[in-house]
Simulated scan of single mutants.
Amino acid sequence: MDRQEEALRLAEALLSDIELSETSTPKRVMKAMRLARLMRDTAAQEWLGFEVNGLPNPGTEKSQEWMTRTGRWVDDEKKRGYWVPSASVEATMNASQGALQAFSSSVSLSGDMIATAMRERAGSINGYTKNVREMAQILAAVDAQLYEYAGDVYAELQFSEVQASLFEQSRVAVDATLASLAGDALKKVESVSERLHSDEPEAISQAMSTCRRLIDSVADHVFPARDEPYDLNGQELSVKKNAVLNRINAFLHTSGVRGGRADRLRRSLSDIYGRVSTGVHSDVDSHEARYLFLATYVLLGEVLTLTASSD
């Protein structure tokens, strides 16, 4: 099981745990801490650390914010509140609940001081009841934060998993098509992938040059160059060797691609070809270069699968 898959399962388990109240809040905190480590989420590890080790008093701006989010303040102006971790909060609540159960047992009071004893007993009951209520509210607020975090991680990983699955399915189809229809182009994909791991300008330039040659290779395959123009809806379209985009557009037309899809493919091809051509010389960093490669790969994959469908 890889890290992302483990994180997805852990997030789902944490959500179920909170929904069904299967364990205590401190145990959920530890589970969430593991989730944050798997996600390499340092920000989450910081606030979860408050629930594991307690909050620094008087605290930092972040710890005071966490005091507010978990309802720990007794007097926020004087910075008085419950700075202890969730395990201590739960222990206080359990102890107070135990004391209340003891008071609920039948007690025989008599003598001259019965009124004083009754007042003290009532005061103790009120104090323990207040403790239980306040501690329960803090734990509920912590659980709410854990639930929100687990839900966000779960949604993120689910989306990532769906995207990865869709991309993998497309990749298999595209690679198979590239291998059968444009074997040389497939070799170029491997070289692009290697070069994009480098931030060196020369490596980026070479990668963009390879992307451009990849588009050229696909154009050569789907619509070989010819001297006579192509009739595209009554307009003569040059389809000579250097008219790479025109030849791909002519292929789309011969494949029966019309309307919005044709417009999208034409615009995308024009934009990408322009950027990778620019990137050969300058103006493209490694981050954009990676996305340009992915966009080129996906777009040409769609074009080549049109060929496969047509064949």
Rank of each mutant, 00 (worst) to 15 (best):
1 M>D: 07
8 L>Q: 09
13 A>D: 13
15 L>E: 06
25 T>V: 14
25 T>W: 02
27 K>A: 13
29 V>N: 01
30 M>Q: 12
36 A>C: 08
39 M>A: 12
40 R>K: 14
46 E>P: 15
48 L>P: 11
48 L>D: 04
59 G>I: 06
61 E>H: 14
65 E>I: 10
67 M>Q: 01
68 T>S: 09
68 T>R: 06
72 R>S: 00
74 V>K: 15
74 V>R: 14
75 D>S: 13
77 E>W: 12
80 R>I: 11
88 S>Y: 04
96 S>W: 04
97 Q>Y: 00
108 S>Q: 05
111 G>T: 02
114 I>N: 02
115 A>H: 09
115 A>G: 10
126 N>Q: 11
128 Y>E: 07
131 N>P: 06
135 M>I: 02
135 M>E: 08
142 V>F: 04
142 V>R: 06
144 A>I: 14
147 Y>Q: 14
148 E>S: 02
149 Y>N: 04
153 V>E: 01
154 Y>K: 11
155 A>M: 05
156 E>D: 15
156 E>N: 15
158 Q>T: 10
165 S>K: 08
165 S>L: 06
167 F>G: 15
169 Q>H: 14
169 Q>W: 03
171 R>V: 02
179 A>D: 11
179 A>E: 11
183 G>A: 09
187 K>L: 06
191 S>I: 07
193 S>A: 13
197 H>Q: 15
199 D>P: 11
208 M>P: 11
212 R>I: 03
216 D>K: 05
223 F>I: 05
227 D>S: 11
234 G>R: 05
235 Q>N: 10
235 Q>R: 13
236 E>M: 15
239 V>F: 06
242 N>A: 04
242 N>Y: 02
243 A>I: 01
249 N>T: 13
250 A>K: 00
252 L>G: 10
253 H>S: 11
253 H>D: 14
257 V>L: 02
258 R>W: 00
259 G>T: 13
262 A>H: 10
284 V>K: 03
286 S>M: 01
286 S>L: 03
288 E>C: 05
290 R>W: 04
292 L>D: 07
294 L>M: 14
295 A>V: 06
306 L>A: 09
